[in-house]
Amino acid sequence: MRRSRGWRIGLCSTVILTGVLLLAQGSYMQAKAYFAQYLIEQAWRQTLEDKQPHKPWSWADTYPVAKMTLMTADDLALVDSTFYVLSGASGRNLAFGPTMVQGGGLLTQGGNRIIAGHNDTHFSVLNGIKPGRVIIFQDANKQKRQYRVSSTQIVHETDNSALMPSYYDQLTLITCYPFNALQTGSSYRLIVRALPV
């Protein structure tokens, strides 16, 4: 009887300790993600001051190249989401924010600016986006340009037409599709195109 009770207490203690450790790990990851966004914002402010790239932390292999603001559908004076666009479209950089795939660099002049983001984090706001939504794009020159979503399209990952260079100014946002999928690694992409207002 005593042995059985001791075994139960030990099992309960192990389950509780495991739960506390998992909760602490999840909280640590959330805190780390929020702190990373703060550091990226600070790096962007420095970039606006001197027009030079600034890493958000010393070992980063990326830096913010633009700020992108998605306005709400109903009121153009209300901000829905703000993103700091990072240079270098690697998986590691995508964990911290949308990344510039093409048309990058600090001082960009027109062309097809292609920005990729994860559909379960930063670009989750693109779920159900409709033509007409306004995006404000700010570069390192402090120049702000308004773009209006002109079209959305779902394509297979082998369709590279969205990556083609363009002579006219446009934003192309790319994320995996469908949203809220049970498995990662979808072979479809949502392409959102926006043209200058």
Rank of each mutant, 00 (worst) to 15 (best):
A31W: 15
Y63R: 01
T152Q: 08
T152H: 04
S90P: 00
A140I: 05
Y168M: 09
T158H: 09
T82D: 00
G10Y: 04
T62E: 01
D139P: 11
R45F: 09
R133F: 04
A140R: 12
G117N: 12
L107Q: 13
K142Y: 11
S150Y: 09
L173R: 02
R145G: 02
D74R: 15
S90H: 06
T108S: 14
S187E: 09
P64V: 02
V85Q: 02
P196S: 10
K144R: 15
L21F: 13
N141Y: 15
A116S: 14
T47E: 01
F96W: 14
L171E: 03
R193A: 01
V125P: 00
T99M: 05
R133G: 00
T47R: 09
R189I: 05
F83I: 01
G132I: 06
R45K: 12
M68R: 00
P98S: 02
S4I: 12
A24M: 08
T69Q: 03
S124M: 12
S90E: 08
M68Q: 01
L182F: 12
T62V: 02
T72L: 06
M164E: 13
R45S: 09
N119F: 05
A66R: 07
A194L: 02
G185P: 02
L78G: 03
M68P: 02
E157L: 14
G132M: 01
I154K: 05
A73R: 14
H118C: 01
Y38A: 13
T14E: 10
Q102E: 14
D139A: 09
S81N: 14
R113F: 06
V149I: 15
S186M: 04
Q42M: 09
T184S: 12
G103I: 13
G104H: 03
T99L: 07
T47I: 08
V197W: 13
T172N: 00
W7Y: 13
L182K: 14
L163V: 08
V192E: 01
L86N: 02
Y63G: 03
L107V: 13
Y177D: 00
R92N: 14
A162G: 04
V20S: 04
A66D: 01
Q146M: 12
E41G: 10
V79E: 11
S166Y: 06
L195V: 09
A31G: 07
F35N: 11
F137M: 11
D169F: 03
M68D: 02
M68K: 00
N180I: 03
N119V: 05
A73V: 14
Y38Q: 14
L11E: 12
G10Q: 04
M1G: 15
Y177L: 02
A95R: 11
P165S: 10
R133Q: 13
V134A: 04
A162H: 15
N119K: 13
A194N: 03
S4Y: 15
R3S: 08
D75V: 08
D159R: 12
G117R: 12
I174N: 00
Y188S: 10
R145A: 10
I191A: 05
K32M: 04
W59V: 12
L126W: 03
S187D: 11
T72I: 06
P131V: 03
P98F: 07
L39D: 06
S90L: 06
N160P: 08
K130A: 07
T184Y: 13
K130H: 07
L163T: 05
N160W: 13
L11N: 07
F83L: 06
T99F: 02
M164T: 15
F123T: 04
G88E: 04
A194P: 01
F96P: 00
I154V: 15
H122T: 11
Q153C: 10
A89E: 15
G104F: 06
I40N: 02
